[in-house]
Amino acid sequence: MDLEPAERDLDTSVSRRSLVTLSGAAGLGGLAAALLLDRTTLALPADDEVERPNVPTDADVALLSQVIGLELAASELYRLKLESADGDLAVAVGIMAENHQAYAQAVAGATGLSAQSANESLVDASRAGFEGSDDEFFAAAHAFEQTAAATHTALMGQYESDDAIALTASIALTEVRHATVLADLLGVSDLDVLFGNDESALSLGDDA
């Protein structure tokens, strides 16, 4: 969803407190809504005798390797914004960059893969918005976070292991929270935007 700056009189400067508290309930609501739209996401195997493996399978690892590239791309994009951000905005952008870096490292730790290579196609596609004005950044980052959350939600329906699902759910939740904060900073008050997600999931196997 394309976001347009709203008329606003309030100070929209960012602080550590606003980044944490503003995102809480809204982030939970957004992810819950996404999961309800995809009832297959956390479905158990059809055969009651079959249990999910605990650790990521080879098929999970193939998908999660693409997730690492997605998360490193997000971190790289936020670091581009850090070159022009200052004050509280720089603090918030730095937190988001570090979060995405941590997600990539968590996936790497769970799979034994390396967390070094960003998906540069994603970086190139979003670079202009992240390097633009603050409002352009808020809109571009919001779209990226929503796309990432939609992608993780779709992937949860494909994973074979409990660990892959649980790890991805925790990542998606925080990305929904990021999106909520970014929409609020742009002055958006429409609940359909704050709590919804119109972005489509990426086809990571097709090099996004």
Rank of each mutant, 00 (worst) to 15 (best):
A118P: 12
G24E: 12
S170P: 01
A179L: 01
L182G: 02
A59P: 03
P53Y: 05
V67S: 06
D48L: 12
L36V: 09
T57H: 11
L77E: 13
E4T: 14
Y103T: 13
H152Q: 15
G187I: 13
D190C: 04
V176C: 10
S121D: 12
G27H: 01
A166L: 10
V123A: 12
S15G: 11
Q146S: 10
A115T: 04
E120I: 09
A26C: 06
A74F: 01
R52V: 13
G69M: 11
Q66R: 14
L155V: 03
Y159T: 02
R17S: 08
E71F: 06
R177F: 00
V181N: 12
A34G: 09
E98G: 07
L31G: 00
E199Y: 00
S84E: 07
A148W: 04
S126T: 08
T174K: 13
G132S: 05
T57I: 00
V181H: 00
A164S: 07
T40R: 15
A62L: 14
L3N: 07
N197A: 10
R8S: 14
M96C: 01
E76N: 10
R79S: 15
L22V: 05
D88T: 12
E145L: 08
D198F: 02
L155G: 00
E145G: 06
K81H: 07
F138G: 02
E98C: 09
A208M: 01
G129V: 02
D206K: 03
G69D: 14
L28F: 00
E71T: 00
A183M: 10
A140C: 01
Y103M: 14
D11Y: 06
A139S: 11
D192P: 04
A85M: 03
L182S: 01
F195S: 02
P56H: 08
D88K: 01
L186D: 01
E199I: 00
G24M: 07
E51G: 11
M96H: 08
P56N: 06
T168Q: 03
L182H: 01
S84Q: 08
D47P: 05
T180F: 10
L64I: 03
L28M: 08
L19T: 03
A140F: 06
S84K: 07
V193A: 03
A92R: 01
G187D: 12
I165Q: 12
A118S: 12
S117E: 15
I165C: 05
R17M: 11
D86H: 09
L185D: 01
D135C: 10
R16K: 06
G87F: 00
V20R: 12
R177P: 00
